[in-house]
Amino acid sequence: MVLAKIRMFWLEYRRDRMAVFGLALVVFFAFIAILAPFITPYDPWSFVSQALSPPSQKNLFGTDKLGRDVFSRVIWGTRVSFIFGLGAATISGLIGIILGAIPAYYGGWLDDLLSRIYEFILVIPTIFLLILIIAMFGSSIYFSMAVVGLTMWPYLARIMRAQVLSLKSKAYVQASIGLGASGIRTLFKHIIPNGIQPVIANITIQIAYAILTEAGLSFLGLGDTTQVSWGQILYWGHLHIASAWWNTVFPGLAIALLALGFTLIGDGINNTLNPKMRESR
């Protein structure tokens, strides 16, 4: 049943060329991330050539201020950015789904309280919140990942909440309650699985958003200097932008492509669920 549903979904998803391209991009980067130790020509931390030498056969993407190979660093950075994006979006997704679904299902004061909480978080300008917290609590990458995740969940919770409210009144859910299924069971067996698709589409887009946020924070000097993340490479690289463009161009391109991959997947899922958005001509 579930498999058949997924198959149907895939048949429809596949028709969207950009969505398939997005998936290909993400799979490509996933391979790079997994195989990073085997495909980096040099150790990303050590000096291999003259400082700031332009792209060449030896150093495909040139070298940085300390003579490190930018190509190897970008490959290595794939891991960090992937982990950051997936981690932050997972945190956001879990909290968003649970805090969106449970209060909506039971209603009452819990629902009111939660709605107030997301209203509060949504009304704080995220960038300044992140700056404040990371500047005060430190910029370890896992900490930033958690904080970014914690700022994103209200968007998902809102979508999940709307889904639960609309599904709660549907016949099969009512039937399941009527048959004596416990509330939590109905929620997790019937409501969440049936209403989760748009949330998943948005989680995918949040992965892209988290990757971009990591880069932005690094750029503002709030990155984790012990990590080879794309944001870090770009931050140190851009200081030499006038003389060594390759330090800026390549890591940024990597960020843009991976973020594009996740964005396109998210759009593709949304379009598949909502085919009227791309009606045939």
């Binding site: 971009l212 880069a215 843009a256």
Partner: peptide, 18 residues
């Protein structure tokens, strides 16, 4: 627009600078 949406703002700025 998906591409522009995915490009980091500051990187786009840097590219325009270059």
């Amino acid at each position: 627009s998906s591409i522009l949406y995915s490009v980091p703002v500051f990187w786009l700025g840097l590219i325009l600078l270059i």
